[in-house]
Write a protein that binds this DNA or RNA. Structure first.
Length: 402
DNA sequence: TCTGGGGTCCTTTTCCTT
DNA sequence: TCTGAAGGAAAAGGACCC
């Protein structure tokens, strides 16, 4: 019997921050933002003390309040106390500042969350080596073949993992155990925080079918709206639909997937290692920039993105065989342009050159709010021919931002 | 009015070749 | 040389997730 667990850290970013700043417990705290221009228009640095000092000794007055926010970021996480004001994930910080001006605002500290993430994942790997990464705060674990993995249908090992993670990090997590990934993911949502839920196929009708379609990982706002318009509100409604009719409505691949998922069918294995498919860097400007008027600023940002990507390539020991750009204009309309290369590239100057070429195919008549550069078809350096002739071109020719 | 940054995967469109 | 079909690859866009 396959036993798959899905583990989800409880309010991960906020919990990590509350461990660091216990004095914020019980207060509305919002994590997010990014660049925060100060009164003089320059970018304010993280107002908090560096980690070498004892950060929890800071008084509440030393934290920045949301009402001081003037940038264009969004909220990544809000504590329960902040949510009471109607503040929530993905909401613009400016809007949140109106709803809850006294909320404490913390910038996202990815480096710290990554470090904690590595710690809790190391704990899991010690107990159950077949683990799949699903981002910074989630994993799938295959309990089928680990010693004791079948005891109490997986509950025993789940309890052990919870306990060890708490001892190592001080954080709680919620775990769902089921015959496959799809049901395990749904199960982990059912008892939060710090819960364990075990589901079998017999639980499909009583526990999964009453859920709204949106609860399924893979049904987003667009598909949900379409399902609702068709009179399908719950997973039970979906399960009752004729598969051929679903395929007619949603296409072969997605229609089939909807039908199978609603019946709790999911054969995907727990994938222990995955090579990155693409890497990208993008940035939203503090104010909209014009291709001509702000040419220098854009050119500088463009170059910086390419340099960061070149660093990323070194770190992952890969070269890239496609280059692309992404532009978002003042209407929030996004366009992309891509280019396939004959020879994989790895140097910032090459990335800059070829990205500059794709840029020439993009309309640049509107003010821009975002610029991104993306590399795809990644090839491990070890897989390149020994005389690896990755192109090294000096960016001598001008493009529109140069 | 506001809407981050990194990803994956899929569908549709476009372009090229036969 | 023109026209059209067919198929594949590349490009573009979009949905979704954390």
């Amino acid at each position: 019997m396959r036993r798959i667990a899905h583990l989800d850290m409880d309010a991960f970013f906020a919990s990590v921050e509350l461990l660091r700043y216990p004095q914020l417990k019980g207060l509305p705290v919002v994590i997010g933002g990014g660049k925060r221009p100060d009164a003089e228009g320059s970018i304010a640095e993280d107002p908090r003390p560096d980690s070498a000092r004892a950060p929890h000794e800071w008084s509440l007055d030393q934290f920045q309040r949301l009402r001081n926010y003037t940038g264009r970021g969004v909220i990544t996480t809000a504590t329960y106390e902040a949510r009471k004001f109607g503040v929530g994930s993905a909401m613009g910080m400016m809007k949140a500042a109106v709803l809850c001006p006294d909320a404490i605002m913390l910038p996202v500290d990815h480096a710290r969350y990554r470090a904690v993430s590595q710690r809790f994942k190391a704990v899991i790997l010690d107990i159950a080596p077949v683990m799949e990464n699903r981002g910074i705060d989630e994993v799938y674990i295959d309990l089928t073949d680990i010693p004791g993995g079948q005891r109490e249908a997986g509950r025993v090992v789940a309890r052990l993992i919870q306990k060890e993670i708490f001892l190592a990090t001080g954080l709680t997590c919620s775990i769902g155990v089921a015959p496959n990934k799809l049901m395990a993911k749904l199960a982990s949502e059912m008892d939060k925080p710090n819960g364990i839920t075990v589901l079998s196929m017999a639980d499909l009708a009583p526990r999964i079918w009453p859920l709204p379609c949106r609860a399924l990982n893979g049904i987003g706002p667009k598909s949900d709206a379409k399902l609702t318009a068709l009179g399908i509100h719950t997973l039970g409604d979906l399960a009752a639909c004729d598969p051929q009719w679903l395929i007619g409505q949603f296409g072969k691949s997605y229609g089939q997937w909807l039908h199978q998922s609603a019946h709790g069918i999911d054969e995907r294995p727990v994938q222990t290692n995955s090579e990155p498919v693409s890497i990208s860097r993008e940035t939203t400007f503090e104010r909209n920039l014009h291709a001509k008027r702000d040419r220098d600023a854009l050119g500088q940002i463009f170059t910086t993105l390419c340099e960061r990507l070149a660093d990323d390539l070194v770190r992952k020991a890969v070269a890239a065989q496609t280059v692309g750009i992404k532009l978002r204009d003042d209407r929030f309309k996004t366009i992309t342009r891509d280019l396939s290369l004959e020879v994989p590239i790895r140097h910032a100057a090459d990335i800059r050159y070829y990205a500059g070429q794709t840029l020439k195919r993009a309309p640049l008549d509107r003010p821009l709010r975002l610029l991104g550069v993306k590399l795809g078809k990644l090839v491990p350096l070890s897989a390149l021919p020994s005389q690896a002739q990755t192109s090294r071109r000096v960016a001598e020719t001008g493009d529109l931002f140069t």
